[in-house]
Design a protein around this nucleic acid. Sequence first.
DNA 1: ACAAAAGTGTTATGATTACACCCATGG
DNA 2: CCATGGGTGTAATCATAACACTTTTGT
Lengths: 233, 233
Amino acid sequence: MSYTYKYPRPAVAVDCVIFGYDHRLEEPDLQILLIERKLAPFKGKWALPGGFVQMNETLDAAAARELKEEAGIEKVYIEQLYTFGEIDRDPRGRVLSVSYVALVNLEKHRPSAGTDAEAAEWFSLNKLPPLAFDHKTIVKTAIERLRGKVRYQPIGFELLPDEFTFTELQNMYETILQRTFDKRNFRKKMDSYGLLIDTGGMRRGKPNRAAKLYRFDGKRYKTLEKRGFLFEL
Amino acid sequence: MSYTYKYPRPAVAVDCVIFGYDHRLEEPDLQILLIERKLAPFKGKWALPGGFVQMNETLDAAAARELKEEAGIEKVYIEQLYTFGEIDRDPRGRVLSVSYVALVNLEKHRPSAGTDAEAAEWFSLNKLPPLAFDHKTIVKTAIERLRGKVRYQPIGFELLPDEFTFTELQNMYETILQRTFDKRNFRKKMDSYGLLIDTGGMRRGKPNRAAKLYRFDGKRYKTLEKRGFLFEL
DNA sequence: ACAAAAGTGTTATGATTACACCCATGG
DNA sequence: CCATGGGTGTAATCATAACACTTTTGT
């Protein structure tokens, strides 16, 4: 079977930059999920999960599908990033890449084996292997988007478990933004937004004082947002 | 001549939301350049300038080409906005739209006749006609991007002539952001960035005190930006 | 001389920063 | 009982917001 058109058309792929964060690490870092390519081109190289857009699915749906098929990840935060269209970005011919960014908490996505049985692995951002295609550029763009957006939209919470401590929250921001915050000032500001619900639970198990667990109040945020409230770190 | 592929491919178009601003108007407003479609579908309706991506041009190049061909506009600020991929957004079949935002000063682009001899007209944002395809959605997204970005990147200057007065600058921001600023505070802040060069010229001709003309110092901005400086309105 | 917009400082308020000690827990 | 991270307040500084009058120009 084949498809014929009057004018040439580029192929269109979606590629996903999946950021993972593990709040339990001593020295936490941002990680990215990569899959090892089993086919040419770039056979054996690491690449972003992705694939071609089907005719009966939207771009968002294609991204969600690839996320599930290749990375075994579902129902997470995902947003469109940018569309890359350099002429020679794919040696097979003209292929556009509509890229997406997803944010997940690593605790929930440890196994990281794709259903397609491709090797999928988390890599620290500081230790990325060489990547196929122009995926290095895509990753760079994704990091810039994350760094820029995390400061004025409460998307960072997507990287944490549902319940988290103040310190875990602060570490997450410090990791992404590559800077430190004063503990008291950080808590004061977060507190002032009234977006953290005290769950009553405690993070225990370490030889120090137990820490209170909080949950992000997404409903309240949406309400406030409509009234012109701006989350800002 | 025709082109055959093993798998079906969507067609890919670029569409441009061209914002124009006229600093000389009594009650300035943001405008958008639209072209009247001469062919089906949506024949006779107004639409964003755009067209299909050629195989030998990047997306940015395609956007620049359409800008020139359909709107007669060249060498202006342009950036990619978003890629729209709803399945039924084009009645002809599956067509993705990689959309772009361009910013121009109306003074320089008055004639607004496209070289393709299509009717091209500026419309006030508040008085847009019904638009073809999903172009209303694209315009809405573009406005959100402009409103969000203008506050922390000095892109607003692209809407003004090279030389402008403080009042013109303030009016431009007030128009885009739909709010007012205190004159003294606005000048104080702008002044503090040191990004405006006094050209020595004056805006004369009105029966009131002449206003000093300034120029945006793009070079200095780039230098400061690298050192971590953040423009913020 | 008048109408219209240009230009200019000061004070009050709120937000941000800097900074250090006691508390609770598990081993 | 000790090591470790949790939790808390205050003062100084800086940025923002509010506010009104004099100057210059063209007609």
